[in-house]
Amino acid sequence: MAFFFAQALLFIIPLLIVALAGLFSEKSGTVNIALEGLMVVGAFCGTFFVSKIQEIGFLENSPHLLLIVALLIAGIGGALFSALLGFLAINMRANQVIGGTALNLLAAALVVFLIRQLQPIYDDFGTVIGSRGDISYNPEVFRLGTNILMDENELKGIGDFFVYVFHNQAYLTLYIGILILVVTTIVIYKTKFGLRLSACGEHPEAAQSVGINVYKYRWLGILISGFLGGIGGVVYALPISVSFDGTVAGYGFLALAVLIFGQWKPTRVFLAAIFFGLFKALSVTFFKFDFINEWILLYPNIPFGTIFKILPYLATMVVLAISSKTSRAPKASGIPFNFKGR
């Protein structure tokens, strides 16, 4: 059970961060379908940095500092990449869905290309004979409880459970994710910046008429979105494997679904991410549950593996069908703003 929750956190936190990334750009009035691409770019920047630093053995004794620097680099990479979308959507007033799709394709191709181009394999004579298809790194050092090994079956009581899930198996990214959630909630609802940002997404002409520079706020929204999207990419890719091969398995699109399911509100987005993450964790850890194993033995003809794999998607569909009737999307989201200088 504890392992299940520890796994679920690995899905919940990146979903939360990337959905909040989408929140910033949609609140400012730009549909960000390029979240997937932003994640890929961020994951590449972060994991490549970690891989290189671990290779030369720098910062070996302070892995958490390394992680924070990697997150910042991933964020900057994502922000730079999202500037391409900003130029397209805000300055050129092009179709944002097409632009976002183009950036998703570009990110996927560019990252695989860079992974190959930056990691050539040499033979004994120094000539290039090929290239590595993935970035490898050691994610174990980033675990908060690396020194205290605790087996899942030896947990006693609720205290041990919490220590196991929120410290031993957890990464620093868990707390960074929660920090981002708190800061986002405060920024969106309690600051001048957040309220102006929302105004640009709800009614840009009205915002313009009271002297708000809509272009500036939309640009800031997209850049913050890129920064968080990049961070989300590395938060997803780093703990889940020992190598990054250039894909994030559709997580950006899932985050978009979480954002819609969360009705563009930070706290509801968090709940939506938890909902989806629990189902997703179930699909990879269902064989750890005794009662499910009993079912599998009882009904050998039912493909439980497939059912648990599609369950998160089906559950999200059902919930979206229930909650989308009263959609509270920012009203001007997806509509280019044209300043006519009245």
């Binding site: 397209l88 050129m92 394709l105 570009l106 290309f113 190959r116």
Partner: peptide, 20 residues
Amino acid sequence: GFVLEIVEIIIAIILYFSAF
């Protein structure tokens, strides 16, 4: 001496510019 993905990059760039 070029990685296969260069072609995909070119197609993505074409799509990006075709958007505007």
